[in-house]
């Protein structure tokens, strides 16, 4: 764990309540109920006194309690690029008046929410597949060569 000088001296409860969704108020209190460390900085003192393993064990138990008390973020909260935006960019970049088919799928994978957006448009010429992840282009196509059409930005929590 890294602490930066000049930052607030937060309690563990305050830290959880402030930074983690679904864990404000009484739930933050329940999460720290069995945590022997009261302030974030105390993790450092604990690490110095009792060793790294002891401090990490406390962190892991705290994380387990936080997970049990919180609900997963729904995929709908992740947002996305949207059909209209992709169509407009396609026209801008490739002069394609996009009349394509758009599919958006939401779900959970490995306990994490994801959104996949796929846009397919006939453009003439060679087939091209463009993929992105978390609003950034990928070096390689995320799908195999048989994947049809123009795939686009998944915004899963990776």
């Amino acid at each position: 764990m890294v602490m930066v000088a000049g930052q607030q001296d937060l309690t563990v409860r305050g830290f959880i309540s402030r930074h983690f969704t679904g864990l404000s108020g009484s739930k933050a209190g329940r999460a720290v109920k069995n945590c022997p460390v009261k302030r974030i900085r105390d993790f450092l003192f604990m690490e110095e006194k009792e060793g790294r393993k002891a401090a990490l064990d406390v962190c892991r138990r705290l994380l387990t309690a936080m997970k049990e008390l919180s609900r997963l973020v729904p995929p709908s909260k992740l947002g996305g690029v949207s059909k209209e935006n992709i169509a407009a960019r396609m026209e801008q970049l490739f002069s394609i008046i996009a009349k394509g088919r758009y599919v958006r799928k939401e779900g959970f994978a490995g306990g994490k929410p994801f959104v996949v957006e796929v846009y397919y448009t006939p453009a003439g010429g060679a087939r091209s597949v463009i993929t992105g992840l978390n609003f950034s282009g990928t070096y390689r196509t995320l799908f195999d060569d048989n994947f049809m059409g123009v795939g686009c930005g998944a915004c899963a929590d990776t």
Partner: peptide, 9 residues
């Protein structure tokens, strides 16, 4: 870069 432009409208 084209992909990044596409996915950041």
């Amino acid at each position: 870069l084209i992909a990044t432009i596409l996915f950041n409208p």
